[in-house]
Every structure is written in C-alpha cells, then in structure tokens.
Write a protein that binds this DNA or RNA. Sequence first.
DNA 1: CTCCAGGAGTGTA
DNA 2: TACACTCATGGA
Length: 207
Amino acid sequence: MRRDEAALLKKLYELLDDGTGWEEWWPADSDFERVVGSILIQRTRWENVDRAIAALNKEGLLTPRALASCPSGRLEELIRPAGFYRQKAARLRAVAGYFSRSGAGSIPTEKLREELLSLPGVGNETADVIMLYVAGRPRFVLDAYAKRILKCAGIMDDHDELQALARKALCDDLEAHRRCHALIVEHGKRYCNKNECEMCLVKRYLG
DNA sequence: CTCCAGGAGTGTA
DNA sequence: TACACTCATGGA
C-alpha cells in the first residue's frame, strides 16, 4: 500500500458514518440464514430475497441438512421471487451441503476462503460476505458500490491489497468491517448512480 | 414500456 | 487482462 491510503480509507469510513442505526442492517435469525441470504441477494433486491427466505423458513428449510436434501424443483419454486431461481437453487444446495458437513468454525481464514470459493456460485464478494457475517473474520467486501466509492476517493481497488489496507485502517476490528460494508452499501444506494456521482460526498470531501 | 438490484460463470479477443 | 453475455423476478 503506497502513500497512506489506509489513512484515506479510515477517513472515508468516518465520513460515511452518519451515526444512524446499522446493527440490524442484515436481519437474520441464524448464521445459516445469512449464508442463504448471501446467495439469494446476488443481483437482487433485498425485498425479493426476504420473500424467498420467508418461504424457506415456512417449510423448515433454513438448516444446512434440510436445505441440502430439498428437491431442486421444490427449491426453485420456493425461491422464485428472488430471481435467477434455477441457478440459485443449485447454489443453495451446494453451500448447504458444504455447511452440513463442515461447520466452518475453526478453519484458518485463508483455507476457509479457498473452500468457499470452490463452491459453485460463491465468488469473491459472496465469499467475503460469508467470512464477514458468518465466520466472523474481518474482510473488506469489494462490491460494485465499494468499487465506485473507492474510485471517487482515489483508493486502489485490488482485491488482495485492499484486505491489508482495510485491516490497517479499521484496526483489524470485526464490527468496524461489518459497519464499513453496510455504510458503503447504504451510501451507494443513495448517492451512487451508474456513472454519475453528482451528489457524491466522497468526492466533495476527499477528492 | 424501460431500467436495474448488496454477482458469478462462461466465452471471446 | 478486459468486456459481453446470460441468468429472472418485481418494483419504480
């Protein structure tokens, strides 16, 4: 990390922090429900994901064992509101199978990440979301909003370098990493359009 | 009617 | 490495 981009990232984090509530930013009754959510949320609004999760919950499928053994057709039917339902049904069955025999508790961070990435439908972003919200490992989630905001702030967006940068800026603190992700997404939804950033606070204060 | 949301996988140049 | 394309529902 050349210059002091960690200080800049820390400043960005503090800038986005408006002091409003964020603890229940990702509501869920269990860790596995968050895993399910991490797959269903891909390229989809939370409102639709919530319907799919509610349907799964109603059928008692929010456990790794139950979900892994649910027939594909039935699963597709239940998660349809979340879109891409054929792909996502297959992905859910795969991650459910993994968590039904793994638990992912005491696995070293790097190895856990590798295992998650080996699952179909789990890419860099989803893997980091699971690491951050389920496995309890501090990770910087490089989603589309983060890429735009980092660009505005003049911070590099290399996936691996960014992890070291974030851990330094956020003092290796788990809650800070979770909060940082939530703040970036919420800021992005409000102020970051596809190409324009007219209202962008980041550019105004850090650019 | 059009646009697109808290991606990932695959194929092409 | 850098894009283009596909997957799909539901709300604005």
